[in-house]
Structures are given as structure tokens and as C-alpha cells.
């Protein structure tokens, strides 16, 4: 049994220690907003926030997530909710499958850099693949989110 703190709630989970956090979240706890895309940490679909950093949950053994603050796309975090609003305004998603991961990466970015440069956005968001090609709208939505925050 391990105890995970996800979106502010504790979950007692019976899972093998080497099981990646992704599958614990999806198959055992049952939050399906976090997606499986590649299983190799290459695409970013499985991103979750761990102590504020965006991590590929498909690569993290669940034992290393114990005692950490985990937030998924279903969770509450100021930047996440503001970004979700911007995502809606810019009609960002096409199929939408990668967008949970995109939003988590963007949330971590804006949490560490309130006013990212274009290069900062490129570097951070370069971890996430969108096969539909929504990148331009993602970038616009991130910038809009920054504007919203700066306006207060």
C-alpha cells in the first residue's frame, strides 16, 4: 500500500512499487484526464504536476511520488484554471487528447516564469507533441493567459 496525494486528496493505493504513476492514476485511482501517449516519456500526454514541476508520469515509479503534491488536469491550481479558460477562448483543442499534458506543462511554465519569453515557451512546450497541430493556438492561449494574470 502506498499513499498518494492527488489534487489535494489522499489515496491509499495497492500497486507494485515499480508501476508508473500514470497507470496508478488511470487504472487504479481512476482519473482518466491524464493520458497515455507513448509510454517512453517522449510525448508529454501523461504530464502531471509533482511539487509544481511537470513530469512524465509514464516514467515515474509510483514509489517516487509518495509524499509529493500531485496535481492532474482535473485538479485546482491558479495557473491551470486560467490556462483552461484561455484554451476555451482560443478554441485550442482539436482531438483534445494531448491537451491535458499541454495544459500541465504550460501550468508548470507559468508557475516558474510568470512572463515567459517566446524561447521559454518553445523550450517548455517542446516536451509535448500534438499530432493535430494545435501549437499556434497553444502559444496564443499561453500568452493570453499571461496577459490575463498581469491585468489582475
Amino acid at each position: 500500500m502506498v499513499t498518494l496525494k492527488i489534487n489535494g486528496k489522499e489515496h491509499q493505493v495497492d500497486a507494485a512499487e515499480d508501476m508508473p504513476l500514470l497507470w496508478v492514476i488511470r487504472d487504479i485511482i481512476g482519473f482518466t484526464g491524464t493520458k497515455f501517449g507513448c509510454g517512453k516519456g517522449l510525448c508529454g500526454a501523461c504530464m502531471v504536476l509533482m511539487d509544481g514541476n511537470a513530469i512524465n508520469s509514464c516514467q515515474l515509479p509510483v514509489s517516487l511520488a509518495v509524499g509529493k503534491e500531485l496535481i492532474t488536469v482535473e485538479g485546482e491550481q491558479e495557473n491551470l484554471q486560467r490556462l483552461q479558460k484561455s484554451w476555451e477562448k482560443f478554441n485550442v483543442p482539436q482531438c483534445g487528447f494531448c491537451q491535458s499534458g499541454q495544459l500541465i506543462t504550460a501550468t508548470a511554465l507559468l508557475t516558474s516564469k510568470a512572463n515567459p519569453t517566446e524561447e521559454d515557451i518553445h523550450n517548455a512546450m517542446g516536451r509535448n507533441i500534438c499530432r493535430c497541430g494545435t501549437y499556434q493556438r497553444i502559444k496564443n492561449a499561453i500568452n493570453h493567459s499571461v496577459e490575463l494574470k498581469n491585468k489582475g
Binding site: 492532474t72 483552461q84 485550442v92 483534445g96 491535458s100
Partner: peptide, 8 residues
Amino acid sequence: DVKNLANG
């Protein structure tokens, strides 16, 4: 569907 696609 944009809202549900953005909130998981």
C-alpha cells in the same frame, strides 16, 4: 466540447 477537452 472545448471545455471538457480542456478539463480532462
